[in-house]
Write a protein that binds this DNA or RNA. Structure first.
Lengths: 212, 212
DNA sequence: AAATATGTTAATATATAGTTAAAAATGTAA
DNA sequence: TTACATTTTTAACTATATATTAACATATTT
């Protein structure tokens, strides 16, 4: 059995998708082995850190050889949990909701958008025969269907209540695009994407470029 | 003159917008003073860290009293650079591009979307009389108009070239929503928002909830 | 006088970078 | 083909840097 330290630091977890992406690229390029120094160059992460990151999960590489691209990719895929299937519902059929529903990349990755909800079920074009359901039917849907991830793309005050409802429905993950900051807890993983915060950070960086 | 340490750690910078948001909320709630312990509770950041963060910029508070909400908000606003105006162009008039163009919150914050570009200038509804211009006219536009921030919402291989063009036009900030990771440099601030990476991280967190 | 609450310093924890012994691959010569 | 020296590269360890938390002296309010 693989030696795995119990808790992987979140900084490391957040680098895993980048490694995964690079390894997918390398596979497309036909490469079948890779060294930490090459990974270092392509991702702008020190080679030492690359090895340190991988060592959290055990020994993936071979001294004098490097890493097997396909093996490493599959390992990271498994660590991330991308070997399983996930049902995703989108709440809010505005521009962001539509953008996510149409996001091609998710389809071939075990991420299935199974429903879209909004306060108005108007004529919105969605792929794969998806239709917009009324938000009032959300709770029932969540009770009768396996929902792994709820995506919040609505704005306004109602988000706080919505987050409560999602947690009550025992949906274990929230991808939150609203202004409201949702706290993760023991039963709910949360990924907050706050466009305002991101833009403000960018503006700070823009104004402080010379400090870099 | 305020005592300011030269380099503010990026982790601190990334918390500033959260403080700013809380302070705006507090202002709306009619509060005119606030303590680090209350900030701590509302943002789930330790009080000690709150004080440590602020101390990077000098002394904002008063012992035994706390912080003046409006003063602190204005200080953070200035630190972030939100007292100035920014011209933003959006490249890509797909769903994400449209979503950002319609983003109400930006208008009253000195963030002005001045142009939208795409490979097809078709009939896309945009606010404030904005029209979609052809991407081929982008370079000329950037040379003849002050552009502070370029937003990339296109996908596909062309992004790498686009980033190069943007840097050549001396646009000092890129808000990147594409899959391609753009590296910041001395002359270009970059904020990468990678939905795939965020989703994959969320999936990891979802599968490792009990570790929290 | 007691309670509150900052700013700063010190201590702890976490993250990143550097170093090295050992393992494997490669190259070369007989 | 085999022996063996050289090169490559990891895994583990060590050192440094950064970030977070705790502690406390000092100032203000009540």
């Amino acid at each position: 059995m693989r030696k795995v330290k119990n808790i992987i630091p979140e900084v490391v977890v957040r680098r895993l998708p980048r490694y995964f992406r690079l390894l997918s690229e390398l596979e497309r390029e036909g490469k079948d082995r890779i060294s930490s120094s090459v990974i270092s160059k392509r991702l702008n992460i020190t080679a030492s850190q690359v090895r340190q990151d991988f060592s959290h999960f055990g020994a993936f590489g071979l001294q004098g050889y490097g890493y097997d691209v396909n093996f490493l990719k599959e390992e990271i895929k498994n660590i991330l949990g991308l070997d399983k299937e996930y049902n995703v519902v989108i709440i809010g059929a505005g521009n962001i909701g539509k953008a996510l529903a149409n996001y091609k990349k998710f389809n071939n990755q075990g991420i299935n958008i199974t429903a879209v909800f909004d306060i108005q079920t108007k004529n919105i074009e969605l792929p794969n025969g998806l239709e917009v359901s009324h938000i009032d039917t959300f709770s029932d849907f969540a009770k009768n269907n396996k929902v792994d991830i709820a995506v919040i793309t609505t704005q306004g005050e109602a988000v706080e209540d919505l987050a409560k409802t999602i947690k009550e429905c025992s949906i274990p993950a929230i991808w939150n695009f609203s202004h409201f900051y949702i706290q993760s807890d023991e039963k709910t993983a949360v990924e907050n994407i706050n466009l305002n915060e991101s833009m403000f950070t960018l503006i700070y960086l823009l104004n402080n470029l010379e400090n870099k």
